[in-house]
């Protein structure tokens, strides 16, 4: 495995610089009163270096570093002003399984795992079966978050139920509490198969590595819980999750409840209209979990139900 130390350390270095800068700023403000002012208006300020020495530097040389604590907080608090939502149109699903493939590839999952499952549903013996893609529902009243002893799984303001795999102790209380079995557990290293790029970045084959784009919600570690993370990092940039764009039939709509708009990559529609006109529902509403994923009932279906795997695009 080729190692790229400089690249790997860049994030750590960034953090280090940032912390130094913060310490510098803090002590700078504190020591402001006893500063000398130069003739030309350029201030010098006394700072406490990480080694514990007081150094004097020019104010112009001190660079502003974004508040790291706020950045960290943002990961737990979510993308401001957003309420991510998903609508799955069961009329269109024909079990192409492209969503599963794309999800597994995007998150670097092992071949036997996926955060989204396409399930064969049959509500009663006499009724016609249909396919139902099932991601994590990112419930507004999540049973998994309630029971977590450490707050490693949490609800964000943008609606995402995320997992902090650095904090997770692996008790698996959330996995048994989820009534939809949406959560998975990384039992061992064989469940961690990441992309080549990720592996190149890593010097620890045990899987202790970060996927930077997803920050805390999708860093995968052995002995912790994982699940669909609703791809908030992509959504914040205005991109659609891979399961949405990969679907050849435009089954999955993803968007923002506050904007009242969802898109399946082919069309962008008004969320409220979509839900109202198609009599959308949420799966097992009676459980009181208030999922953020809506289903459009499988009526007037575009495809007949076929038991075999149907991978051809339309």
């Amino acid at each position: 495995m080729p190692k790229n130390d400089g690249k790997h350390n860049s994030r750590r270095d960034f953090l280090k610089t940032g912390l130094t800068g913060m310490a510098a700023l803090g002590s700078g403000v504190f020591l402001h009163a006893c500063n000398k002012q130069d003739e030309d208006g350029d201030q010098t300020i006394k700072l406490l270096s990480p080694e514990g020495e007081v150094v004097e530097v020019k104010r112009s040389e001190v660079k502003y570093v974004p508040d790291l604590e706020a950045l960290d907080k943002n990961v737990r608090e979510g993308v401001p002003g957003r309420r991510f939502v998903m609508v799955i149109n069961l009329r269109r699903c024909r079990n192409a399984l492209r969503c599963q493939e794309a999800c597994a590839e995007m998150h670097g999952l092992a071949s036997h795992r996926s955060y989204i499952n396409v399930l064969k549903m049959q509500d009663a013996e006499t009724t016609y079966p249909y396919w139902m893609p099932q991601p994590c529902y990112h419930c507004d009243d999540p049973p998994c978050v309630k029971v977590c002893p450490t707050g490693a799984t949490f609800k964000r303001t943008d609606g995402v139920v995320a997992i902090d795999t650095v904090r997770c102790i692996g008790c698996r209380f959330c996995t048994v509490a989820c009534p939809y079995s949406a959560r998975q557990f990384v039992w061992g290293t064989e469940d961690l198969k990441l992309t080549r790029e990720d592996l190149e970045r890593s010097d620890e084959p045990s899987g202790e590595l970060d996927i930077v784009t997803h920050q805390t919600c999708s860093t995968r570690r052995v002995g912790t819980v994982e699940k669909c993370d609703f791809c908030p990092a992509k959504a914040a940039k205005g991109e659609l999750p891979d399961c949405v764009t990969a679907c050849p039939n435009g089954v999955i709509y993803y968007g923002d409840e506050n904007e009242d708009a969802v898109s399946n990559g082919q069309e962008t529609v008004r969320l409220s209209t979509l839900l109202r006109e198609n009599a959308a529902y949420r799966y097992k509403e009676y459980l009181g979990t208030k999922p953020r994923v809506y289903y459009i009932p499988p009526v007037n279906r575009r495809f007949p139900f076929e038991e075999t795997l149907n991978n051809e695009t339309t």
Binding site: K146, V147, P149, A152, C168, I169, G170, F185
Partner: peptide, 29 residues
């Protein structure tokens, strides 16, 4: 036995540093 069952027993102290009293596991503890 609970510690044996944990996926990450090395993080046992997280239960104290981040403990949430809402969790029945904390009541247990």
């Amino acid at each position: 036995m609970i510690i044996v069952d944990m996926g990450r027993p090395d993080r046992l102290l997280n239960v104290f540093s981040y403990g949430r009293i809402q969790s029945p596991l904390m009541w247990d503890l």
